[in-house]
Every structure is written in C-alpha cells, then in structure tokens.
Amino acid sequence: ARLLHGSIFAKVIEGLRELVNEATWECSGNGITLQAMDSSHVALVSLVMRSEGFESYRCDRNMSLGISLVSMSKVLKTMGKDDSLTIRVNDDSDSIIIAMESQNQDKFADYELRLMDLDSEHLGIPDTDYSCAIKMPSSEFSRICRDMSIMGDSVLICTTKEGVKFSAKGDLGQGSIRLVQTTNIEKEEEAVIIEMKEAVALTFAVRYLSMFCKAAPLSPQVGLSLSEDTPLMCEFKIAEMGHVRFYLAPKIED
C-alpha cells in the first residue's frame, strides 16, 4: 500500500494509539480495515481505508496483521512531513515493512516491525438511524472537550433545533458551551450543522472524547451521531479514502 502523503497514515495512527495500543489490521483487496476496543470495553474504533484511496494498492490474499500502534507511531514519527509511505508485508513474513521516501527522492528509510499474535474481539455494530447528527469543526470539538474537562469528568450533550449544548459539573462548579447552528454557510469546514429527528440528552466520559480528538487532524469536520440509550458515534473522514469512527458507551444513571 503506497501513499504519496504518508502523513495521512501517521495521523490515523496518532488518532488511534491512545485508545488502543495494539490492534489487528484486516487487509483485503478492498483495502484495510480495523476494529478494536479499549481494554475496558467502553469505547471502540472502526477504521476503513479503501484501496482506491492509495496511490497503489495490492493484496493478493486476505491477511490479519497484529500490530503495535505504539511502536508504529514511533516509527512514523521519523517520517519527514512530505514523505511518501509504502507499507508491505511479504507472504509468510512475521513483520511489516514501512518504507519512507523523501519528496525529491534523495532519502529512503526502511523499518521492519514485528507482527504480533493478538486476540481480537469484534462487535457487530448495526447501521443505526440516529436521532441527531451534528457536524462541527473538529478543532472546535477538541476545544470543547478540553474546556469541559476543567469542570468535570463527564459531559452532558443536549441537542435542540437551535443548537447543541455541552455541559459539565464537578467540585469546582459547572460550565457549559452552547453552539448554535450556522445559518449562513460560507465555509463548510467552519459550519455547525444539526440534523435532528428527536432531541437527545446523553452523558459521556470526557476522557474518551478527548482521546477521540487525537484523530481531529485527519479532518476539518467531525460528525457526532446520537440517540437515547445508544453509544455515541464520532466520525472523522479520511479525505476520499475512508473514515475513523469511534463509538462510546454513555454514562447511565446508577
């Protein structure tokens, strides 16, 4: 799999590695997918990178590759900003080859990372017709998570036709941030768009939302999909090639 802009892949890894330290990558002719849960089974990430999004892609037989995302992140940190990236696994090999190439082709770096034998659990996530779908700048969402974490461990997300409100309370007191829907969309990237069938009010652990925000550099917009008594789905699109979706179980009344 070759990417002209290897930084896209580095951003994907940075987006996942805090939530899941290691994961099994499923490779097929259609592309690369991954599903992994955090150790406490509170959050899940689902990654799709379709083959057509790569400069070149070939997979002769389906493979499951157990990879340490922490190690891969360290390797990818050595990559130059404009480097291209090629990932390769040879038949019957127990390692993955990560090759980087500088833009003017005067530097070539190769790394081999040992593959791991991982036990992976998968959840069947049905297509869900959410009560509420919010789109907002991902930088704004990151900021809200950061700001709400000052006030408490949990954030209550409430939606109405007018907007969406995030609130948190704790020993210090309480705080809230309300975003109103953008009425005059000039720049789609900066817009707040709320599609609502029913109002929702759900509480989530800020710590996990903040981990999801590590994937924010992938996309200028984030999608939040919510329904009562259902995990939140937080989506960052990966240009034309796929997406990273995070699922987070809500906090419920004791």
Binding site: S40, H41, L123, G124, A249, K251, E253
Partner: peptide, 14 residues
Amino acid sequence: SSIQSTLVVYYEKI
C-alpha cells in the same frame, strides 16, 4: 450519580 456502561451492553460480540 451516573455509572459508565460498556459497549457489550449495546452491541453483540461476533
């Protein structure tokens, strides 16, 4: 007070 639920409450293991 609220408690943290887990994903396995909502989705089936496959």
